[in-house]
């Protein structure tokens, strides 16, 4: 009897481990970054790369968060793509390199560009599948990555990738917003709850 109880407890713990996972965020910024010297006005968000089914949606969600600040003019991914296409430039669908981003930024006439990606990462034993959003803020004139943010959210088997997409994009957006607010001499206070939520 004891063995049965012990076995059931082990199974319960195992299934709990399999279903659980936590959101992991990693934010890195240029240590030598002198925010006072940066006098940015326009920032373009380039179309996201990664999982084809989520590229557009994640780019759109990310720019939704970026547009919450009113200090900088944001060029949204769709507009950036149209403008670049007019000039005969088609961005890479897999990974946008820093040179490509700089060129796009120069054409769009912006001070900085944001490149982003959305991928699925198969991780460790206790946290098998994660949706990972990653963005980099690039200074166009210096061709330098100013900040990078990565947010990894575990995909719950019952809900799928689409349900965790807002959490992943909001995570990276909050990090980039903190830099933008700092540039404007303000402090960014991220909301306690997710912003993109279905209303009851």
């Amino acid at each position: 009897m004891k063995k049965v109880v012990l076995l059931s407890m082990v199974i319960a713990l195992f299934s709990l481990l399999l279903s659980c996972g936590e959101t992991v965020r990693h934010f890195e910024r240029d240590e030598e970054l002198d925010l006072e010297r940066l006098n940015w006005g326009k920032i373009a968000i380039l179309p996201f790369t990664g999982i084809p089914a989520f590229q557009r949606v994640s780019g759109e969600l990310f720019s939704f968060h970026m547009c919450k600040q009113k200090h900088f003019v944001i060029i949204e991914p769709a507009i950036a793509e149209i403008e670049l296409k007019k000039r005969g430039i088609e961005l890479s669908k897999t990974q946008i390199e820093i040179e490509e981003a700089q060129k796009a930024g120069q054409i769009l006439g912006v001070d900085a560009v944001i490149v982003g990606s959305i991928i699925i990462k198969r991780g460790e034993f206790s946290n098998p599948v994660n949706l990972v959003a990653g963005v980099s803020l690039i200074n166009v004139s210096k061709r330098k990555v100013v900040a990078t943010s990565i947010c990894s959210v575990p995909i719950q088997r019952l809900y799928g990738e689409h349900k965790v997409l807002p959490a992943a994009t909001e995570g990276v957006a909050n990090d980039i917003l903190s830099i933008l607010y700092e540039l404007a001499g303000e402090t960014w206070n991220p909301p306690q709850k997710g912003i993109v939520t279905k209303q009851e």
Binding site: A53, V57, S58, E60, L61, F64, A78, T197, K198, Q199
Partner: peptide, 14 residues
């Protein structure tokens, strides 16, 4: 568009 994203969340496709 912002309100739509706020009310309905991310679309399935654009």
């Amino acid at each position: 568009k912002q309100e739509i994203l706020k009310w309905f969340g991310p679309p399935v496709a654009i």
